[in-house]
Design a protein around this nucleic acid. Structure first.
Lengths: 235, 235, 235, 235
DNA sequence: GATGAATGAGCTTTCATTCAT
DNA sequence: AATGAATGAAAGCTCATTCAT
């Protein structure tokens, strides 16, 4: 096994372990055990634990960066949007292990690394936001707060991919793409603009109290049941 | 200071420390220092570090559970939806510290606890999904995959709240509520059904290749810049 | 490059590295890097790290042994003494790297090796002591404790060479030789036996208390200033 | 056992272990084993291994600094010199363990600490040198290179104390003081200035070759015997 | 109840040494 | 002979948890 292969093997092992246990619970011992090398070997290929993690995340970043196209408003916008959705989904679905690291386990690292993660998030968001603003000028995007739209979009996308990474759902890729696209295009709440308003009558946009309940009724509340946590040790 | 107060003081301190440092970087020493009690005292009120964390999270859950109403399809659906959005936003915005823990730092805990978190997520999602299905029967929800709709919705909501918890954005609460509601109601992609179809012509929903690019063009790619990670020590 | 050359190259590299970093900080990696051979090659020529060190030290020993002459009391003693001083100085000044190892870095080795170093020191000292005793019989050495005289002499010599090895001082060799010789011949405290006693009056050799101060005065004390130690890592 | 006692116990244990094994070979495990506490306890009292060592050395420094008096040339110089010798000897003989650390094991520490040690050495030396220069003006010190005199003196003193620390010699304190004082006062080489020159005749200060031997004779060489070093492991 | 000193398992990282090529 | 990748025993240090006072 040559150096590059060994390095790959270690990266693969690290990816698996990180995604299963999260950064802190992943021990170098776990990684080398999975890669079937001695502990010292790990440090022949990476200067420390953090750097493997960083390398994995950065690899995912650059694959994402390589997949996303800046939307050209003079061409077919819808197709481009769909392409981007599809490309992002493809990259992340292809690497559920890393995706789940990125989306949920990335905490507690050193501040500089966390900063890097955030910077990436903001970059992606800014890009999306600018595309939406451009789209508004062209009349293909609804008026409204483009920043919030960007946030919602990213959130929706992340959640789908996160579920997938958790292996709770293994949805056909194209179904995700289509559904997300539809969702972004028309939402799902069908409040017939005319009929709706008419039907609801004058009470209109009655603001429900932010906390507390609507008075005079005993609405059914949702109470999450309690699970039990197991004992092990330490931290 | 009586028992209950002391307990509250510890919980408050723990919440602050957890949200500032994440679960692993938060040391019991930090918590007791902030609460101004001795280390041993901590263990008089909680069996271990994990359990404080669990208690905090469960508290947030139950506040959420208490705020969400099961949608009654015979009454004003839109108002109820908006109420729910508003209620969830209210609970989570009121406790950004815990929210950020929940959304990003919750990794690396023992499997049983992670399971509990997941169970809660699924419960919430199932509830939403059922409401959406009911809504479809009543014609107030677009046809489509209710599960994906639920996922998208939760993701959009999470992301907005996450940004808030990160203090990147401090948006007026009602603006979030309204924007999210609008977003769910009509999306933002305006592809005029008639014009759009006409414009796109017969090729219809041409599937762009999932990976790889459209041929014959050199589209602008997005390349996230690289940050540097700092050295500190160890893990 | 033949075997002997390679061996020499390794010894030279080791000497440099040991003298720059001390035994423990000197890594086998440093040595082979400087010698431009592979790590495994090192172990082809030496059984282990310690043995290179031992060989270097032993080489210095034997050069010293070869330089020192047993003083023949029937010949010109002073010249012989001076010769010996000169010879020792020559050997050690020619190899400041090794000298500094020997004088300051030689700690923390395995007990057997330390024993060997001590044995050498004692041998040299015994030799000197015997010469001094002989000299006393011949009337060319002051009466007094020859063992202490030997110790003082060795110490004075070591210190001068040590300073040189530290590169704090680069003194002309002959000046060292002459000064040391003068020092050994007459010391430097000039307490004119007659005048001195007269001047000091009857109190004579008042013994100052070994610890504590002479009463009734507040003599100026010497207080070394404090430096700060830097943080690096580990050991 | 209260905090101060425990701290002392750890310092004592560290002193013993350091002086027996040198800094690098002394393991924190050794220290805590000797002090009969758990490893963690060590770190309750000292931030790291280096700092105990530093504290020990600094303690010795300050005891030395406290013992040495700046020589007042208007008073009885000889007595003051003797006092200083006596004081230094007292401090160092009282703590042979630390003395041996200071004199031989102090290598391989982090550069900043080594610098501190050197600074102390230079301070002491400078003090002595200045006193000697002053003495020369007053006619109580022989003309000559005061810096070399200072170096010789320190070396002689160190060596005596070092031997003592090694437990090779347990000499009565006052004998050391007297012998050193005598040594400094008149050396030991008795070359009767007048007779000597006459006796030696015209050959005077014939310079023996710096290396190589006087020709025409086969002088007896000193060859240190070889010891054997034992095998253990590693470094 | 409250305290905080003591504990020790466990972690990351280093590096002398080995050995297949 | 030469190489350099692989090894794994140790080391320093951390911190959740315990327990005598």
């Amino acid at each position: 096994m040559d150096k590059a292969e060994r390095r790959q093997a270690l990266l693969r092992a690290a990816r698996t372990v990180f995604s299963e246990k999260g950064y802190h619970e992943a021990k170098v011992d776990d990684i080398v055990a999975l890669a079937k090398v001695a502990k010292g070997t790990f440090y022949l290929y990476f200067p420390d634990k953090r750097s493997v993690f960083g390398e994995l995340v950065r690899g995912l970043f650059s694959r994402l960066g390589g997949a996303i196209l800046r939307v050209d408003p003079s061409a077919d916008v819808e197709a481009q949007v769909k392409h981007n959705i599809r490309a992002i989904v493809a990259v992340l679905l292809d690497d559920p292990a890393l995706t789940s690291i990125l989306l949920s386990h990335a905490a507690g690292l050193d501040p500089a690394f966390v900063k890097e993660l955030r910077a990436f998030r903001q970059e992606v968001k800014l890009l999306l936001q600018q595309s939406l603003a451009e789209g508004q000028r062209l009349g293909v995007i609804e008026p409204g707060d483009t920043e919030l739209y960007a946030t919602f979009t990213i959130g929706a996308l992340k959640e789908v991919l996160f579920e997938n990474a958790l292996e709770e759902q293994a949805r056909p890729r194209e179904r995700i793409v289509t559904a997300l696209h539809d969702f972004l295009r028309r939402g799902y709440l069908r409040m017939d603009p005319a009929a709706g308003l008419a039907a609801r009558g004058p009470e209109g946009e009655r603001a429900a109290p932010a906390t507390g309940d609507a008075p005079g009724e005993a609405p059914e509340r949702v109470s999450p049941s309690r699970g039990r946590r197991a004992r092990s040790r330490g931290d």
